[in-house]
Write a protein that binds this DNA or RNA. Structure first.
Lengths: 213, 213
DNA sequence: CACGAATCTTGACAGTCGTCCAAGGATCTT
DNA sequence: AAGATCCTTGGACGACTGTCAAGATTCGTG
């Protein structure tokens, strides 16, 4: 067996146990790849370096992935699964508009500090997708799911504050994404008050977006 | 002579004409590099490819630049010189708030179409600066000058519309940058209405930022 | 014109890269 | 236990990289 990606319809005699084991190993290798990518960035990440961050040798990567692009797109999809779902309980628990704003802003600031390196990778890969069309579909999917997340936040905030949003969800996502990106840059450049600035900006922007500023 | 970058205090007998010629050649090579970078992106641009986009051989690059990083940081600075100054006549000519908004939005949409590849490079290099500290200072300088440009636009718009901005310039820049980035992604992915969407979003965002939406 | 300095080309260097493959160990089926 | 299949290793391959230096070429100046 080789290039497991498109081998969905493999001979029936291969047990599900084996298939699960393969998928588990792919995840394991993808995690090592994500670790390496978030440390070095796309331009400086090699397959040998990825293998050194795992417990296997570099040859095994071509057993579980067709090529480097296949591995990295798998990583991008896996990244999405880990990343998006964190904000949805914020919108579920908050009962007033200011509380929602505070919790959302706090969640963003916490993400900035805790997962800054991962998001650095995200912006790197999104830039790469401007050049390498192979990544484009996965990047678009992640972007769409992030936009839906923002949409839920804004809609709930508008509902709680009794005012409809004054701009579309695309524009709202672009704004919050821009804020986060700028904060990430400052944070990684060593600015100690980047999280707090982000927090204040996010609270204010939620107000602006609903015309309550 | 070698590594012209730090040779500001070279022997006085070398004429200014020669020094100018050197600077001219550096610009020439940097333009070839910028062309290559905007086509291939940072990760896939090699010195030999740059030289092929110029009329020289690859060896000459190390005659005019210390190393690859020196060349690319020079490119980034040159990029800034070309890029920023386009918007300042917009703020000078517009006499009403709606006119300013329209002209600014039209200028951004035009930039999107005309210099999309150059801005793709900008976002690529800004991402690289999250990993490679060498680029950080130049990227920060460009970001600051772009932010000042946005500040002038917003301030003038606020003045013309008689309402003060409802958010800081940092946040305003982050928002417009996010909008442009998202529009660029869609534009390069083939969305034909990306420029018009950007235009509408920018007009609306100017209103939002002054609380007139 | 001729000499020296500035400029440019060419080829080589030591690495690294993605990819592939032969070989053998590990694991499962019968 | 034996045979078949899966898994992993480690090395080899050719292509490509940044860098450098020696030689060829061009240029300005006496």
């Amino acid at each position: 067996m080789q290039h497991v990606t498109e081998a969905v319809e493999r001979p029936a005699r291969i047990s599900r146990r084996r298939a699960d084991k393969v998928e588990e190993r792919r995840r394991e290798l993808a995690d090592a790849a994500l670790l390496t990518l978030s440390e070095l960035g796309y331009a400086r990440t090699s397959l040998r370096e990825i293998a050194q961050n795992s417990e296997f040798s570099h040859g095994v990567l071509h057993y579980y992935f067709r090529d480097k692009v296949d591995l990295i797109t798998y990583c991008v999809r896996r990244y999405k699964a880990v990343c998006v779902q964190r904000y949805d309980d914020v919108v579920a628990t908050a009962t007033t508009a200011p509380a929602l704003a505070d919790e959302f802003a706090a969640a963003m600031a916490a993400t900035l500090v805790a997962d800054g390196l991962m998001h650095r990778l995200w912006y790197d890969l999104r830039s790469q997708s401007l050049f390498e069309a192979s990544f484009r579909d996965d990047v678009a999917a992640i972007d769409a799911s992030l936009e839906r997340m923002i949409e839920r936040i804004v809609a709930r905030y508008a509902q709680l504050s009794g005012r409809p949003p004054v701009c579309g969800t695309g524009a709202a996502y672009a704004m919050f994404d821009g804020l986060f990106q700028q904060a990430l840059w400052r944070h990684l450049a060593g600015d100690p008050q980047a999280p707090d600035t982000l927090r204040a900006d996010v609270v204010q922007m939620l107000a602006v977006v609903t015309g309550t500023a």
